[in-house]
Amino acid sequence: MQAFKQKLRDRHTVSLINADHSCAGLVDFVCRLGIDAIMLDCEQGNPSFVDVEDMARAAALHGVSSIVRIPSVEPWTIERYMMRRIDGVVIPRLDTAAQAEKAIADIRYAVPADFPDKTIIVQVESVSAARDLDNFLSIPEVDCFFIGAVDLAKSMGFSGNYGHPDVVAELDRIIARIVAKGRSVGFMVKENDMKSWQDKGASMLYAHVNDFLHMGARQWRSLAGFAAEHKS
């Protein structure tokens, strides 16, 4: 079993970094920084199938898991990505556990021999999915439940504002229910909220490489003593 998958199963703190750019060289560099897994975002990003293959190979050189967020759950979409020699998938756009089970069955069909080693992360990002959470939690093949806070807030009628008190309360309830079942929770974290989401139970910490760049740039400017007008 790949290390990232096992760490998710054991609820160890792990990092999943969205590469944000379709560049194998960037993946090669980021994977030297001690991350656990790199996300190749084919739902919101623009990697081609060739890009996915090249980026996955770059991650493999450093023993880092390559995880593709697929754009949709059609069987042919799943099969094309799974045959790119990736280490696992994030499955978005799910409203019911039955949809997740169907997608997992299609993954098993695409890579039957390697299926036990593939990481499977499902996103919980809609009111419908939250209502069906108990059934999601009954699926043994899922390694992590990744809460899509922005889309959940949109589904709740708050235009993606996951800082709204009603959304925060729902997020807290979802996390508590997942943790109570001994399952892994994934959450998008920022500089100012990472610790608070960890304290609530998130163990897979998801971030964009663009945020890494902003954090590094701010520290660099601070150390170099740049004037305030240079700050973004």
Rank of each mutant, 00 (worst) to 15 (best):
A97P: 11
S126V: 01
A130L: 05
E79D: 10
P116C: 05
D117M: 08
D87F: 01
Y81I: 10
R131M: 02
I120A: 12
G88W: 09
I78P: 09
D117N: 14
V111T: 13
V90D: 04
Y109R: 15
V73R: 06
A110G: 03
I104T: 06
A130F: 03
T77D: 01
R108I: 00
L133K: 05
T96C: 05
F136H: 09
P92M: 03
W76T: 11
N135T: 11
A130H: 11
I86D: 03
P116L: 04
I120F: 05
K102Q: 15
M83F: 00
E125Q: 10
D132A: 01
D95N: 15
M83G: 01
V90K: 13
L94A: 11
L137H: 10
I86K: 07
D132L: 00
V73S: 10
D117C: 04
G88K: 10
K118R: 13
K102F: 07
M83T: 14
A105I: 00
D117R: 12
L133I: 09
A97H: 07
W76D: 04
V89E: 13
T77F: 02
D117P: 01
T77L: 03
F115M: 11
P92Q: 02
D95S: 12
A100K: 04
D114M: 08
N135P: 02
S126L: 04
I86H: 13
V73T: 13
A130M: 11
I104H: 08
P75H: 05
S126M: 08
S128D: 13
W76P: 00
I78W: 01
I91W: 12
A110C: 06
